[in-house]
Design a protein around this nucleic acid. Structure first.
Lengths: 216, 216
DNA sequence: TAGATTGTTAATCGATTAACAATC
DNA sequence: TAGATTGTTAATCGATTAACAATC
């Protein structure tokens, strides 16, 4: 069953939920029981208004005069983000970046399971990474027909990214988490979340020049 | 010398420049000579208006009735982003993610130079990565006083990220490229660009549930 | 020239912030 | 209760899109 769709929530709001979630997890592990929107805002460098506005899109999680119970709010956000549902994933490209992602420690805790790892490199095929054997990429299409996979992760070089993405889409994947520096366009059929790592370095570089002046 | 500051450019605009740049680089390598804002828009999934609006903040790079010369526009954006200036960087955390970043092939071409790699792990210290020896993190502070470094990269586990960031800031670094899932707050003193990789997975997960319905 | 496409202004749309009544 | 803080409405701010005169 799909969620009740009240009104569509803005993407800008959804992108902030994981930030709140991460910070609440930290607070919770430190034994902090309550927090107000203004305290939270200060720690995260946003406004209290924004936090209350964001949360109010999903329900009433606080108590007037008191604030938010950290444990409750954390769980509420986990629920909103669907972290209580399992998501099955495959990864293509078992280089350093791929391995870094596979070994991310919180995936399982949050319901994300890597079910298969694929690569073209004969030296990597057969290697064990986090308890899985790296398989030949030529087996990917079959793997997807035999397994119901939600998310495909692309950590290949840019040249192969589009081919892999096509296999993912034909294989019935619902979302692509793309780390290759290419623009993937599958309007509507599949959701694509791009993590264009190097682009953020260019942004940083621009802002450094702007703030401190360029070195030349 | 610092750039002429006409009017401050919106961050949202600056974040799109690397996208344009990447795509123009691809076009250029394919031998494409000209492109119109509407063609570019279609390929990138944005509006032609936005592209023209964005570019017009920095100058007039096109020709009415013709469009943009790919080579010219590419170079113009490189200039805006400061890719013709050298940026010296150090990296802390030589695990898989750190190695992935160090080996990114386009850094030098774009003026980004990694000058030092640091870690706490004795097994990594002394290892050679991309022509540099991994050094003990205890040497980082001294390294920064002896070398003029622009950008510090944090690819450590979250527990050590704040300590490393403090060393960076005391060492006179101007920007931090942070991959650790922590919120770094150095309002004003230093620029911080966060790449919270796992947060984008949570966003994707939410949107999949929203679009296709959750599996439960 | 005629057609095409930019650069830019004005209109729209959406997101953030401020403010405050509701209420714990 | 009195003080604090939420949830929510309204006001502001900023970013995107539409439209078109300028012009290659």
């Amino acid at each position: 069953m799909s969620k009740k769709k009240e009104k569509p929530i803005a993407v800008s709001v959804i992108k902030r939920l994981p930030v709140y979630y991460r910070f609440l997890t930290t607070l919770h592990s430190k034994g902090v029981e309550r927090i107000s929107s203004s305290e939270l805002a200060e720690k995260l460098g946003v406004t209290a208004s924004q936090i209350r506005q964001d949360l109010s899109q999903f329900g009433n999680f606080g108590q007037r005069g008191y604030g938010y119970r950290v444990a409750n709010l954390k769980e509420a956000i986990a629920k909103i983000l669907g972290l209580d549902n399992q998501m099955d994933m495959v990864l293509a490209g078992a280089g350093n970046l791929g391995k870094a992602i596979i070994n991310y420690p919180n995936f399982k805790r949050r319901g994300f399971y890597i079910k298969g790892i694929f690569d073209v490199n004969p030296e990597l095929i057969g290697q064990e990474v986090a308890g899985l054997l790296v398989q030949d990429i030529s087996l990917l299409a079959d793997f997807l027909t035999n397994n119901r996979i939600d998310i495909g992760i692309i950590t290949t070089p840019p040249e192969s990214a589009v081919d892999v993405a096509d296999i993912f889409v034909r294989g019935g994947i619902r979302g692509i988490w793309n780390f290759a520096p290419v623009s993937l366009n599958y309007s509507g059929k599949v959701l694509v979340e791009n993590v264009h790592i190097s682009e953020s370095l260019l942004t940083l570089s621009y802002m450094i020049d702007e703030k401190f002046g360029s070195k030349s």
